[in-house]
Design a protein around this nucleic acid. Structure first.
Lengths: 160, 160
DNA sequence: TAAATAAAGGACAAAAATATCCGAAATCAT
DNA sequence: ATGATTTCGGATATTTTTGTCCTTTATTTA
């Protein structure tokens, strides 16, 4: 009954600032940092439970962070992921984004042009410079430490 | 010969501010606006030549903009796309982005959480507010008109 | 009215991102 | 040593995004 033909000629919607992978990566790193500050390692399972992410996929992303020396892993019982306490304040959001999504989001042209610059600007260049630089500065100046502390003291949340 | 196995366990890289579709959409709209200011319609072919984009794919995106009443189309000989002159200044970048990528990029949570807010903030919420609001403001205050004029007078470029 | 032109739209194809599965390797406790 | 635990890594599957092809529809011009 009813010949209502729902035709969605084109889909899209939902483009966010970072890729899913990067979102998981940032969240996971914050959780690992938080636990590390408490002197605890965090297992993959603990992480995925905490940030509500697919396990195997999250594992891949964690490996990416391990290879970038942003976090460290230990195999076997009571193993897991950790960050040396004295390193947590040194890790900036920009490093995590860079390791997973690359730096195009805060360094590239807003229209994806490869040769866009102040001397050869794309139409939105000047408009984007301010936003992009602010994003860049924010990412480079935000440390894992402050994010982990905010979560630890209950000021911020990772659920939903 | 040579058992060099290049294993890219994980790919990624290249996440930009907008989707390809949105980049094409913005560029196309600017070109249409520019020609409209000159009293000319622009054909799909002219557009794709100008912005160096795949023809059929660009057509789909243009249809999206047509359905959103951002640009208008005329079939047949000497047909093409256009924007009424008096409307060009009214069209803001935010409307184009919204029609193609949605508003998550300048309204959503930086970590993709659906219930992130000032009262229930994610760890990066406060850090992102400033950047996001600046992006939002920029998109909402930038009109197609100024972008088209910049291109017309040779101040900005769309190639490469 | 017929032919030519150009957008609209459907079906399909390729590539990239996201996600799952399972065995291997390392480590720890017994 | 053995078994349990946990990360590592390869293969594969699914979904989304990007891109192509070809037919249909509307419009103009001859």
């Amino acid at each position: 009954m009813s010949d209502n033909k729902i035709l969605l000629i084109f889909t899209s919607k939902g483009t966010e600032m970072f890729s899913k992978a990067c979102e998981y990566g940032i969240k996971a790193a914050i959780v690992v940092a938080q636990e590390s500050l408490n002197g605890q390692r965090t297992s993959l399972k603990d992480i995925t439970r905490e940030i509500n992410s697919p396990e195997a996929f999250t594992a891949k992303i964690l490996q990416l962070l391990v290879r970038s020396r942003i976090i460290y892993s230990v195999k076997g019982p009571h193993g897991g992921f950790e960050i040396p306490k004295n390193q947590i304040d040194e890790v900036k959001l920009s490093e995590i984004v860079d390791a997973i999504d690359g730096d195009a989001i805060y360094k590239g042209c807003g229209l994806g042009l490869s040769e866009c610059s102040a001397s050869q600007p794309c139409p939105v260049h000047d408009k984007f410079v301010k936003v992009r630089d602010e994003l860049k500065l924010m990412l480079e100046n935000t440390s894992l430490y402050e994010l982990a502390v905010g979560l630890e003291v209950g000021l911020t949340f990772l659920n939903r």
